[in-house]
Simulated assay, not measured.
Amino acid sequence: MSHCILNQNAVIHGWERARGAFPFAIELLSRGIALIQLPCPEFLVLGGDRPPMSYQEYLTLPNYRQTCQKMLQPIIQQIQAYQAEDYQYLGVIGINESPNCSISGQRGVLMEEFFAACQAAEIQAPYLEVPTWYSETEQQDFSKELQRFLAKGGRNE
């Protein structure tokens, strides 16, 4: 899952939507669902005090796409290792409209590289996205979407 789902300290200061982790991540852990946290290239490359940037602006950073590719290599290896041990990989959870972690619409830079790496490794990559309105205090129907995702075993149908 996207890094900031488990660690809101990585988002741009003032844009946090929860204290620590999003509530649904805590729910998943309490249900015995193990989570793999994707790296946050925004935080690792530019730090916590970075300005808001668009997808296009991230593309102009030297070697940014290659940095994302390198960061994802151990994640792909982990997924493959778990699958070799017969663990079920449910898929990836991204952040809608993020310049790096968006999946639908304009896919973020990190997710473009994640899905390309999954395809190269022949890993099915079902997904779910956290809506832009989701927060610690505003969860609305996201719980229903999450339950559908889990019930399908992570399959996009």
Rank of each mutant, 00 (worst) to 15 (best):
residue 5 I to T: 12
residue 54 S to N: 01
residue 35 L to V: 10
residue 109 V to A: 04
residue 39 P to L: 04
residue 58 Y to I: 04
residue 68 C to V: 02
residue 33 I to Q: 02
residue 11 V to Y: 00
residue 100 N to A: 01
residue 58 Y to H: 13
residue 63 N to D: 14
residue 53 M to P: 01
residue 35 L to H: 02
residue 25 A to L: 13
residue 70 K to A: 14
residue 31 R to C: 07
residue 25 A to I: 15
residue 36 I to N: 08
residue 86 D to E: 12
residue 42 E to F: 03
residue 98 S to E: 06
residue 8 Q to C: 06
residue 48 G to K: 09
residue 111 M to P: 04
residue 36 I to Y: 01
residue 121 A to S: 12
residue 27 E to H: 09
residue 76 I to C: 10
residue 104 S to G: 10
residue 19 R to G: 00
residue 79 I to S: 07
residue 113 E to A: 03
residue 73 Q to L: 13
residue 8 Q to E: 15
residue 53 M to E: 08
residue 104 S to T: 14
residue 49 D to K: 05
residue 133 W to G: 11
residue 89 Y to T: 07
residue 86 D to W: 02
residue 83 Q to L: 02
residue 38 L to R: 01
residue 76 I to A: 09
residue 18 A to M: 05
residue 90 L to D: 02
residue 86 D to P: 01
residue 120 A to V: 10
residue 154 G to D: 02
residue 97 E to R: 15
residue 75 I to G: 12
residue 88 Q to K: 07
residue 42 E to V: 02
residue 31 R to L: 09
residue 127 Y to W: 15
residue 45 V to I: 13
residue 18 A to S: 12
residue 81 A to T: 14
residue 117 A to D: 07
residue 95 I to K: 11
residue 128 L to T: 09
residue 140 Q to C: 07
residue 83 Q to K: 15
residue 22 F to T: 08
residue 139 Q to C: 03
residue 142 F to R: 03
residue 103 I to D: 05
residue 115 F to A: 07
residue 111 M to I: 05
residue 106 Q to D: 12
residue 19 R to E: 12
residue 62 P to N: 09
residue 91 G to K: 08
residue 93 I to H: 00
residue 11 V to T: 12
residue 34 A to R: 10
residue 156 N to V: 06
residue 119 Q to M: 07
residue 108 G to N: 11
residue 6 L to W: 03
residue 79 I to W: 06
residue 152 K to W: 04
residue 25 A to V: 15
residue 77 Q to C: 02
residue 9 N to T: 14
residue 38 L to T: 03
residue 55 Y to T: 07
residue 108 G to F: 09
residue 76 I to S: 12
residue 71 M to R: 05
residue 45 V to T: 13
residue 2 S to W: 00
residue 45 V to R: 09
residue 44 L to W: 00
